Simulated scan of single mutants.
Amino acid sequence: MTLITEALGTGDWRGDEVVDSDTWRISLGSAHRAELCAAVAAVETLGLELVDFSREDFPLPTLGPVLHSLVGELMDGRGFVLLQGAPVAGLSERQCDILALGIGRHFGRTAPQKDGRHVQHVRDVGVDPSGSTSRSYQHSGPLGYHADPNDIVALLCVRPAQSGGLSRIVSSVAVHNEIVATRPDLAEVLYQPWWRDLRAGDGPDSFHQSPVYTVDTAGRLTTDYGPDYMRSALRGAHVPPFSTRQLEAMDLLDRLNSDPRFQLDMDLCAGDMQFLNNHVTLHSRTRYVDHPDPERRRDLIRIWLNT
């Protein structure tokens, strides 16, 4: 096994170094917002299902080239981008879905999520986080740092919570390199297979194994971490308890992910759309409290993209 011993060329940043930078924030102007509203209306006129409309059905004459240029930043640069000012106010739920998908399809191909849907609303529906089929997007509790199973995850904020729900991200490359430099013995553990819970029920098909760190043939690092689902995998009858070294490795990884030197916070507002490269970025969320008015409760639209 070969471990990466120095920083990779892409996706390596620290929160305390980029927090005050404007290079990862892209503010949409009035002309761009008008294009987005017109594109949503165009798809509505076509009467297509959400899964069926294409990038060409969602025309963005001036904003499209801007979005296309950001793909390089996501996949070969810093690994995250925040669009600000998407026109969600006054739109119906379907129109917000079209907006999120339309923007996303100018970055790549949208991928199906639960039940084959290409959009998933992240909102509290009152599930028990420990349930065998509960998903992290269905409750208001805090989430451990994790990556989703695709190239890019995007979140469009339709409404923020009354309080909390802060988005936190970290460069998994920077954290990896810190572990390799300071605890190479634990880095080796993270390159080995770990049990994961798919939350697909109680049968053996709900569990699988994969390493936290892998390197492809081009030497690029991919991080697949999700402590919430890794810990819940212990409910599987055939899944052994964590070893002492695994517990130590998880503790170190969790501490570094939450270290202010590495962590970057984003307080997403209505109209913000966050894009993250899952290979080099981990994300988490703080606990949130919803508005008592159901019409004002937190709602984010999640889409998965492959480039």
Rank of each mutant, 00 (worst) to 15 (best):
H176G: 06
V125L: 01
Q113A: 09
P61V: 01
L70M: 07
A174L: 04
R159C: 02
L91Q: 13
T133G: 09
G64N: 08
P65V: 01
R168W: 00
S69C: 11
T110R: 14
A161K: 06
P184N: 09
I103V: 14
L166C: 07
L70E: 10
R94T: 11
A187M: 10
L50N: 15
D128E: 09
I169H: 00
Y145N: 03
V51N: 06
E44R: 13
S130C: 01
S69L: 03
H118V: 14
Y145Q: 04
S69A: 14
L156P: 02
I169F: 00
R168S: 15
R123T: 13
L186P: 07
P61R: 10
C96E: 09
V180R: 12
V175R: 14
E44D: 13
V43P: 00
I103Q: 00
C157H: 01
K114C: 04
A181G: 04
S92Y: 02
T45V: 08
H68R: 12
H176K: 05
V71Q: 12
G141M: 08
Y137A: 06
D128Q: 14
P59S: 03
D76R: 09
I152P: 00
S167I: 08
L46F: 01
T62V: 11
C96W: 00
A86N: 08
G126C: 09
G72R: 12
S132G: 03
R55N: 07
H118I: 14
L82W: 05
Q95D: 14
L101A: 12
K114N: 04
V173P: 01
E178R: 03
V180W: 06
D76A: 14
V71P: 00
H106Y: 04
V51E: 15
V170K: 13
K114E: 05
D151V: 02
R183I: 09
R55Y: 06
L99Y: 05
V173M: 03
V125M: 07
V43D: 04
G164N: 07
S172C: 05
V88Y: 00
T133V: 13
D57F: 02
F107R: 13
Y145R: 13
P87E: 10
P184H: 12
A187G: 12
I98D: 02
F53P: 07
H146I: 03
V158F: 10
V175K: 02
Y145E: 04
V153H: 01
V158N: 14
L50H: 15
V170C: 12
I103R: 06
S140G: 14
I98E: 08
R168M: 09
A174K: 05
T62F: 04
N177Q: 11
K114S: 12
A187W: 02
T110W: 01
R55A: 13
F53W: 03
I98Y: 04
F53A: 03
G141E: 15
G90V: 03
G85E: 01
H118M: 11
T62P: 02
P142M: 10
V180L: 04
P184S: 12
R94G: 02
P142I: 10
K114Q: 10
H146C: 08
R55F: 06
P61H: 07
R135D: 09
D97C: 15
R55P: 03
P149I: 01
G131T: 09
H68K: 14
R94W: 03
V71C: 06
V66E: 07
D185K: 15
V122C: 10
